[in-house]
Write a protein that binds this DNA or RNA. Sequence first.
RNA 1: CGGGACGUGGCGCAGUUUGGCAGCGCGCAGCGUUCGGGACGCUGAGGUCGCGGGUUCAAAUCCCGCCGUCCCGACCA
Length: 497
Amino acid sequence: EIWRKSGRYELIGDNLFKLKDRKGAELALGFTGEEIFAMLATELFSYRDLPQIWYQMHSKFRDEPRPKSGLLRVREFTMKDSYTLDIDRPGLDTGFDKHRAAYERIFARIGLDAVAVEASSGAMGGSESIEFMQRSDAGEDWVVTCETCDYRANVERAVSALPLVDDGEPESLERFPTPGLRTIKSLAEAHPDLAAAERQIKTLVYYVSGEPVLILLRGDHDLQEQKLLDATGAPEDAVRPGQPDEIREVLGADPGSLGAVGVSDLTVFADPALEGRFNMTTGANEDDWHYRGVDVARDIKVTTWADLRAVTDGEICVEDGGTLDLWKGIEVGHIFKLGTQYSETFGAYVQDEDGESHPIIMGSYGIGVERDMAAVVEANHDENGIIWPVSVAPYEVVITVVRADDDATLAAARRLYSELQEAAVETLLDDRIDRPGVKFADAELIGIPYRVTVGPRGVESGTVELVERRGLVKSEVGIDDVAARAIEAVQAARSAI
RNA sequence: CGGGACGUGGCGCAGUUUGGCAGCGCGCAGCGUUCGGGACGCUGAGGUCGCGGGUUCAAAUCCCGCCGUCCCGACCA
C-alpha cells in the first residue's frame, strides 16, 4: 500500500520484490526506506525537533532481473541507509554535505578511492544526487572524469562540448535516392561530401508509456536511455525501443530510411547537438530515399529539446575544455537530495516559529555493504589473493606455525597468540599439520594483513618472520619483540585515516 | 523477457559427434618417505551420469518432455 501511495509501485516496476500471503494480500519487501522514514517522520510536529539524521543497517530486497558478479549485484543485500530531515533547503544542504564527507571518509578507510560523481536520481526522485564510484573493470557503470578539472559525472547524466560542424551554405530541401543504404556508415561512405556521420540526423522510434515518440540525434551519436527516462519522467519499464513492424506502421519505412521531416503527429525529442544545424541529411520515411539540405529549424517540428546523447571517451569538458576520460566503475554509494515529495505524500509536516506548517525536507543516503566489500577486494588484491585493509580485515594477524607437530614451536606460537589476543588484535592461529607452502598460500589467499611465521628453526635462534601482506614485505624479528611490532603496526593502520 | 552454454564420485572436468566394461585431476582414508613456499610412492573408498518417459539386444551417449545452474543484453546500493 505504501508503495502505491508514493507512486513507486509503478515507478520501480518489476524490481520491487512482490509476494502474496496466504490470504492473497499483496506484500512488497523493502526496496529502500524513504516511504517508511517519511511515515515515521509524521511523529514530528515542531521545527524544534529538526534537524534529524536517522540511519539503519538493514536488509533490502530487489527482484533484480539478473543477479551477477558474486556480491556486486544480488537480490537481497544489506544497506547502510540514512535519512535527513530538515526544515529548509540550507539544512538539507548541510546534512547532504555531512553525509558526503562522512561517506568519503568511510570509503577511504575501507581501502577504496571512490570518487563522487554527478548522477541521475532515477526511481529515487529528488533534485540532485551524487554517486560514489570505485574504478574497476568489474564495474557496471560508465563514468566520465575531466583530466584537468574536477568535472565528474555518470554517463547517465554527463555532458560534453562538441566542436562546431561546418554545414557549408544553406540549401533547399531535396529528396534523393539512396538504394541499399540503410546505415549511417554506408550513407556516409557513399556520399562523403554531404553525408558525413556528423551531418546526418539519426532518427529512433521509442515507445514511452505505450505512445510512439521520435528521438533525433546527430548521426555519430548514441542515445543514453537514462537521459530519455529523465526527460520523459516515465517509469523505467515504460520506455522501450520500437519493434521493426511498429516502426513501419508509425513512419511507413524500415529502420535505415527514417526521418522526422514533415512529421507533425508525433512527439519529437531532439538532442541539442542538432540545434541550429542546416544542410543535413536524414531518412525520407520511404525505403531507399533520403532528404538532403535539411534545416532543422525550418523542416522539423521538434516538441522537446533535451540532452539525450551518450558522452564518449576523449570528448571535451564543458567546464574547462579539458579532455574527458571514460571509465568503468562500481557504484559503492549514492546520496540524494529528495526534497518534500515523500513528506508531502505521507503527511510529515512541522510548524515553524510562526505557526506555519511546512513539509519536512528529506535527503537519503545509501551504502551497499556487501557490494562495497566486493569493491574492496577488487581494489585490493594481487595474483596471490585478497589484501584486506586492516580496517575491514576479518583477522588482523595470522600466525603460521611451521611444523605444528613440534611441541616447542607450537608452544611459542600459542604464547604469541595469547599476547596478541590480549592486546585486542584479532588473530588467527594456523596450527594445521600441513606443509608450510600450503599454509603460506592460504594465508595470502584470504588476505590477512600481517603474518607471523613461527618455526622450529626460528624458535631455536629466537627469531620469527613478520610479513606484511601488501607487497609481501618480510622482516626477521626477535621472538620477544614480534608481538609489540605487530600490535604497533595494526594500531597504526587502524588509526591511519 | 530476448540470446547462448551447461548439468557425469566432495570439487573441477573428459567421455556424447559414430550407442558397447563410467574415466582423469584435485580432495578423502591407510602405510611409508619427506617437511621454512602449494611434496612423493604404494594401497584403497567413493558415481541413481539433473528428473521422467521413449527407441534399442544394449543409452551418460539417440528422441520427446520437464527441472536446475551459469553466461551475454535492459536495471541498481
